[in-house]
Design a protein around this nucleic acid. Structure first.
Length: 167
DNA sequence: CCCTGATTCGC
DNA sequence: GCGAATCAGG
């Protein structure tokens, strides 16, 4: 891949918008972040407007009602499973603002033995360290993941990464 | 360990 | 000019 006028222009645009070198590299395709950085320097636009991707601690968007609501188990339809579901998904009101903390209870989740067609199968932890388990949150009927992990699982990595880093 | 940009230097 | 390797930092 060579630096056509078009690609250089896009590079300038994205760089000035505050995207990181790796993000830009991914956007352009066919180049590494090193290539992008090198080009940026050669173009003499290394210093950019303060809109960098991660200069300060990232402001987190609190997601009050939506997430909790989705996670809440629907027990009306199956009274037999109700007690189990309660235990697995009981949301801690005082958990951190991080959405993942709501999904994975402290030290929680469940083992592979606890998985049912109604529990999230998202893997958590390191198998090599013996702390491997599964999310265990209530999953929407027919889906292998809870609402939160389903969003992650079915989103292209590239897009997910970009959404996380951008802004 | 993940990531970031900066710099160097052989090509 | 290009970009991989490397560095310093968060």
């Amino acid at each position: 891949m060579n630096w056509t006028d078009e690609r250089v222009e896009l590079l300038k645009k994205l760089w000035s918008e505050g995207l990181s070198a790796s993000q830009i590299a991914a956007e352009l395709g066919g180049v590494t972040r090193n290539a992008v950085i090198g080009k940026v320097h050669r173009l003499g636009l290394s210093g950019r407007a303060k809109a960098a991707a991660s200069p300060a601690p990232r402001p987190r968007k609190p997601r009050p009602a939506a997430t909790t609501q989705v996670m809440r188990p629907m027990v009306q339809g199956n009274t037999a499973l109700a007690p189990v579901v309660e235990t697995v998904t009981a949301p801690e009101p005082e958990v951190a603002a991080d959405p993942i903390a709501k999904v994975i209870p402290m030290g929680g989740g469940c083992t592979i033995l606890d998985l049912t067609e109604f529990t999230c199968r998202w893997p958590v932890g390191d198998p090599g360290k013996g702390d491997f388990h599964y999310c265990g949150s209530r999953s929407k009927t027919g889906l292998p993941y809870c609402a939160y992990h389903a969003r992650i699982a079915y989103q292209p990595v590239q897009d997910r990464n970009r959404r996380r880093l951008a802004r």
